[in-house]
Amino acid sequence: MAALFGAYSSFLARRPLVGGMASSAVLFATGDAVAQQLIEKKGSNHDFVRTARIVIWGGGIFAPVVTVWFRTLERLPIKSKWPATFARVGLDQFVFAPIVLSGFFTAMTLMEGKDMNAVKQKWSEAFVPTLKANWSLFIPFQTLNMFIPLQYRLLAVNAVNIPWNAFLSLQNAKPKQVEKAENELKKD
């Protein structure tokens, strides 16, 4: 295990963006699999397209943006450890998190082939409860994460993201379940 972590650390040092994208893709897929298999109990009806969408979001959009964001936060010109931590967490959670969650709901809805009206509806239904849940998990976690070396922060976030991504996947799927039930009622 130590050799695997050493190889991963070496890869992150050489290619931080690619390493973060790869680990994010795997861990976002894991979160969606947890949501579909352990919570929704889909079994052989696993929605692989849904998993692919969250992998595209996690590996292709989230990871590069967060990698740049963490580097930006690290450059805040505050020398004292605790004030710097509180400033970083505050910016991360009260500026960046709402943007990322809005991006998530926008990207996922558009990747489902829906239009901007559907994005607005999804956002109005899911944004506030998701943001509150985000704050309850990530404010304490990010306070600790800011003490982890910069190159491992995305990995630490991704580890916590397994249950969080399961939650996001469920939040994103909720309106579809309601929509499906409404469509079935219309058929009758």
Results as ranks from 00 to 15, higher is better:
1 M>D: 13
2 A>C: 04
3 A>W: 09
4 L>A: 15
4 L>T: 12
5 F>K: 12
5 F>T: 11
5 F>W: 12
6 G>S: 15
6 G>H: 11
11 F>T: 03
12 L>T: 10
14 R>D: 12
14 R>M: 09
15 R>A: 13
15 R>Q: 14
17 L>W: 07
20 G>W: 01
23 S>C: 12
24 S>D: 06
24 S>H: 00
26 V>E: 06
26 V>T: 10
28 F>K: 00
29 A>S: 09
34 V>S: 04
35 A>G: 07
36 Q>V: 04
36 Q>Y: 05
36 Q>P: 00
37 Q>W: 11
39 I>G: 00
39 I>M: 06
40 E>Y: 08
41 K>T: 09
42 K>Y: 07
43 G>C: 08
44 S>I: 14
45 N>Q: 15
46 H>G: 11
46 H>D: 09
47 D>Y: 04
50 R>S: 07
52 A>G: 14
54 I>A: 05
55 V>Y: 04
56 I>S: 12
56 I>V: 15
57 W>G: 01
59 G>C: 00
59 G>S: 03
64 P>S: 04
67 T>V: 09
67 T>M: 08
70 F>M: 12
77 P>D: 15
77 P>A: 15
78 I>R: 07
81 K>G: 09
81 K>Y: 13
82 W>D: 11
82 W>P: 08
84 A>G: 12
92 D>N: 10
92 D>R: 02
96 F>A: 10
96 F>P: 03
97 A>K: 03
99 I>S: 14
101 L>Q: 05
102 S>A: 15
104 F>M: 09
105 F>A: 05
105 F>I: 02
105 F>K: 00
106 T>R: 06
109 T>M: 09
113 G>L: 07
114 K>P: 00
115 D>T: 09
118 A>D: 15
118 A>K: 10
120 K>Q: 14
126 A>H: 09
129 P>C: 04
130 T>N: 02
131 L>M: 08
132 K>C: 13
133 A>Y: 03
133 A>C: 11
135 W>G: 07
136 S>W: 13
139 I>A: 02
140 P>R: 05
141 F>P: 01
143 T>C: 06
145 N>A: 08
145 N>S: 05
146 M>W: 08
147 F>Y: 14
147 F>I: 07
147 F>D: 08
149 P>A: 07
152 Y>A: 00
152 Y>P: 01
153 R>T: 06
156 A>S: 15
158 N>I: 05
160 V>C: 13
160 V>D: 03
163 P>L: 08
166 A>P: 03
166 A>Q: 00
168 L>S: 01
168 L>W: 00
169 S>C: 11
170 L>I: 15
177 Q>D: 14
177 Q>G: 14
178 V>F: 11
178 V>P: 03
178 V>G: 02
179 E>W: 08
179 E>G: 03
181 A>N: 12
181 A>V: 13
182 E>F: 10
182 E>P: 04
184 E>W: 11
185 L>T: 13
188 D>W: 13
